[in-house]
Design a protein around this nucleic acid. Structure first.
Lengths: 152, 152
DNA sequence: TACGGATCATTGAAAAAGTCAACGATTGTT
DNA sequence: AACAATCGTTGACTTTTTCAATGATCCGTA
């Protein structure tokens, strides 16, 4: 990751046609965003990934590890590490799958929900900073477009 | 990266509030997109990164390696590797900076431009597949929002 | 019911990517 | 002229990603 400046810079290169390449735009926004998000989450001992897992654990949807892997575009073995970490810290628990005893469903603990609420608040501030250039409407629009692109 | 299915699936977990987290949405769209893009570019011996560098080398903007690093959110040492690779294959050249002799500006060769044109065509098809759920208007809108979020 | 192929979580190893500090050459500033 | 800062480069180090193998369990089928 390159150095980040606090001031907004409009680089010379943004003029290139590449500035219309969705792939690069996503990569760049994701890269700079990740940096900020991870910084914001560090206070809670979380990173973007573990926060995502914790969020889903807190959602009441009782996701299996396989579902987490698919949804987060991770290898199943990476989910093992993430859940291990969260479990050791008492934020989530592995429970036996209901229909399928091979599967483990990930559920949050009370402490996990406590941390999650705090972290989410911090993250929302961070995200607003990140998308400060957008109006509230555009912000909503962006989310809608991303969701539609992903799931129709 | 988790396993990808060719069919479009709307996972159960998309219902979670996490589906509104811009950070995660970006991460996911970027992840699935990268996979497809890299697959599309493999025919030309390129990946998303080297394609980006090649694009900028072909842009006529004569970027320095430092500018490439900043713009692509990469460490300068990563740019060295990318340019090394492209240069060995005769697609770009390092030229001496004009005002600054420390800097090297990256320019494309004729062969580089040839490959780039082909790769770009392939990539555009790939991107359209990727954003098939969006109308043409929405597609344009998404690009505009991403650019605005990045550079105001 | 029992067999066979598939899926789940897990492990561990190998490959790739990212991070970071140091260096020579060059620049701009004092 | 002296000094600090910047550019590209190298090499070491850590983290992340990728992949194959394994035991347990599930499901379809004979």
């Amino acid at each position: 990751m390159g150095p980040q400046s606090t001031e907004v810079e409009i680089p010379r290169l943004a003029a290139a046609k590449i500035g219309n390449d969705v792939g690069l735009l996503l990569a760049k926004l994701h890269a700079t965003g990740s940096l900020l998000n991870n910084k914001a989450l560090a206070d809670y001992g979380l990173r973007e990934r573990s926060f995502s897992v914790l969020t889903l654990a807190c959602s009441g949807l009782e996701p299996t590890q396989r579902e987490l892997a698919d949804f987060l575009s991770l290898d199943p073995s990476q989910v093992v590490s993430l859940v291990d970490d969260l479990e050791h810290r008492g934020l989530v628990k592995r429970a036996q799958g209901k229909q399928d005893r091979r599967a483990k469903i990930i559920v949050s603990t009370a402490e996990g929900r406590r941390i999650h609420n705090k972290a989410r608040a911090g993250l929302e501030v961070c995200e607003q900073t990140q998308l400060a250039a957008l109006t509230e409407d555009e912000n909503v629009q962006l989310r809608a477009l991303l969701k539609k692109a992903l799931w129709g």
